[in-house]
Simulated assay, not measured.
Amino acid sequence: MSRSTRATLALEKAGIAFTVHSYEYDPDADSIGLQAASALGEPPGRVLKTLMVLANGRPVGAIVPSDREVSMKKLAAAVGAKAAQMMKPAEAERRSGYRVGGISPFGQARPLPVVLEEQAIEHRLVYMNGGQRGLQVRLSPGDAAAVLKAIVAPIAA
């Protein structure tokens, strides 16, 4: 497994401090985020998942703790849209440039608006996908929000 991905390169280019952590990815896990938290020995609230969503038909990244779901109503409101829905996996892969299970908000093929669940900001450090299945980056949620120009809002259900 490469520890250098488009995501890690984007973080390095932005001057963001982070560490890289790999784990045994289980493609059959019921929840990829919860499986990552378990494999890393971390509480699920500190391991964030990146979801690809369409809000009024526009791509948006939603980042929430791995043990929470996204409220599509709250997400839509956060970006000024009337409605939101999950992207189909093939579209999420095409749009992000990453494979499902390895979608990172950093270094995506084309930048997109990102909404970060406000509870994530309460932690000193969080884990986010590093752009490859089985690879996480640990960083300050404030740094992540800054580099992503994220909207920080209550979007978890």
Rank of each mutant, 00 (worst) to 15 (best):
138 R>P: 03
119 Q>K: 10
45 G>H: 02
13 K>Q: 13
144 A>T: 03
136 Q>V: 15
30 D>P: 06
45 G>E: 01
81 A>M: 08
24 E>Y: 01
155 I>D: 00
53 V>Q: 03
151 I>C: 15
72 M>W: 02
107 G>N: 14
71 S>K: 11
1 M>E: 13
34 L>V: 06
99 R>V: 13
71 S>Q: 10
126 V>G: 06
80 G>E: 03
95 R>H: 12
113 P>E: 01
121 I>A: 08
94 R>Y: 07
115 V>L: 03
89 P>Q: 04
80 G>I: 00
84 A>I: 09
65 P>I: 03
94 R>I: 02
85 Q>M: 04
46 R>F: 10
140 S>F: 07
78 A>F: 11
25 Y>D: 04
95 R>Q: 14
130 G>Q: 10
68 R>S: 12
9 L>W: 06
153 A>S: 15
2 S>C: 04
31 S>I: 11
136 Q>T: 14
50 T>A: 05
73 K>V: 15
71 S>C: 09
56 N>P: 09
33 G>N: 10
3 R>W: 07
109 A>F: 05
17 A>Q: 13
16 I>Y: 11
76 A>Q: 11
58 R>Q: 15
117 E>D: 15
105 P>Y: 01
104 S>A: 12
82 K>W: 02
28 D>R: 14
80 G>L: 01
48 L>E: 00
16 I>S: 12
43 P>F: 09
130 G>D: 08
64 V>A: 03
122 E>M: 06
115 V>W: 00
53 V>Y: 00
33 G>D: 09
34 L>Y: 07
105 P>R: 12
91 E>R: 01
76 A>Y: 11
47 V>D: 11
27 P>C: 07
75 L>K: 14
81 A>Y: 08
126 V>F: 00
91 E>H: 05
4 S>C: 06
62 A>L: 00
28 D>C: 02
15 G>A: 08
63 I>H: 02
39 A>K: 15
57 G>R: 01
19 T>W: 14
111 P>G: 04
74 K>H: 05
120 A>H: 07
16 I>P: 13
72 M>G: 13
119 Q>H: 06
25 Y>G: 03
121 I>G: 04
140 S>K: 09
124 R>C: 04
138 R>G: 05
28 D>L: 07
4 S>V: 15
11 L>A: 12
29 A>R: 08
50 T>Q: 07
14 A>E: 08
111 P>M: 03
65 P>D: 00
109 A>S: 13
33 G>I: 09
17 A>N: 11
104 S>E: 06
5 T>F: 04
97 G>N: 02
99 R>K: 14
